[in-house]
């Protein structure tokens, strides 16, 4: 057989998109801008779901509000697009009411860390079994580029016209100190590593957090003169450093400084349902 024909035989034309089972194709095209990193993160998520080898029928996804808040609407699982910042609270209700379900919260930095900050730390403290994927683009993008609790010091936003004056949250440190059992950070460039992290965290019992640094080419990049999405990816390529197991205290991100990525926390702690069932079995024994 001639080589060319052999290739033709091996590569079959596909009738359907490879992510057809994971994405709601009837909702495409999506709303995200060119150069945005959310789409890449969703691709990694779809691949991670596949790799994690979990029952998709028993898996649900909850989002809050914002650009990343729209993710739930594009994923073909039982999916909920809820109120601003309350995704984790909503997901807690689902998980506690039916512990057999796998619950994922996919939302942005403003949603999870600002308006939803209280729910974030309390769910981590309780160690409710869920995976939180937090896209961090350093800005409120859906509303047009306002300063966020993750905006680096001195970075510009429409509501910080003289440069951001508030120190930002270090999300892995916040998650770690609140009690999360799995904490990782990747950029939208680290697709393969992010995929592996998602697959790993999906099978980790307890509260897992994966932060994904993502370019916002439309607002964060434009107001700060950082070029387009590709330029920001180039920046991640040149300035991110993988340091697994790094102390989360050292993970602050300054304006255009080095970004440390990797898996920082992977530990065991009884989940909320473990403790709850232990209490419940104790009560039932006492009754007898």
């Amino acid at each position: 057989m001639e080589p060319l024909k052999m290739i033709e035989k091996d590569i079959q034309p596909m009738d359907v998109h490879p992510m057809n089972d994971i994405l709601r194709m009837d909702r495409l095209p999506h709303i995200w801008c060119p150069g945005c990193g959310i789409g890449t993160a969703v691709t990694a998520f779809a691949a991670g779901l596949d790799k994690a080898n979990i029952d998709l029928k028993k898996t649900c996804i909850v989002s809050g509000i914002g650009c990343t808040g729209r993710v739930a609407g594009y994923i073909k699982l039982d999916s909920f697009h809820t109120t601003h910042g309350r995704g984790i609270a909503f997901a807690t209700g689902i998980k506690v009411a039916n512990p057999d379900l796998k619950v994922i919260v996919f939302s942005g930095d403003g949603d999870l860390i600002s308006i939803g900050g209280n729910h974030f730390i309390h769910a981590a403290r309780r160690n409710v079994n869920m995976l939180v994927i937090c896209i961090n683009n350093f800005i409120y993008a859906m509303t047009g580029g306002q300063v966020a609790p993750t905006t680096p010091l001195a970075a510009y936003a429409t509501t910080s016209p003289f440069g951001c004056v508030e120190p930002p949250f270090n999300i892995p440190y916040l998650a770690d100190s609140s009690g999360a059992v799995y904490v990782a950070r990747w950029t939208a460039l680290h697709v393969r590593r992010l995929t592996n992290s998602i697959a790993e965290a999906l099978n980790k019992p307890g509260f897992s957090v994966i932060e994904v640094i993502s370019p916002c080419a439309m607002y964060y990049s434009r107001i700060n003169r950082l070029g387009d999405g590709l330029d920001m990816m180039k920046f991640y390529h040149d300035n991110s450093e993988i340091r697994h197991g790094e102390d989360t205290k050292n993970l602050d991100i300054g304006f255009q400084t080095k970004i440390i990525v990797g898996k920082f926390v992977d530990r065991e702690r009884p989940t909320y349902m473990d403790s709850y069932n232990k209490w419940l079995s104790g009560t039932k024994k006492a009754e007898k």
Binding site: V62, T83, R86, A89, F90, A91, T92, G93, I94, A97
Partner: peptide, 13 residues
């Protein structure tokens, strides 16, 4: 806020 959010989530189970 989270109490009622959790209740709505739980109701869907």
């Amino acid at each position: 806020i989270s109490a009622l959010a959790a209740v709505i989530g739980a109701s869907w189970t």
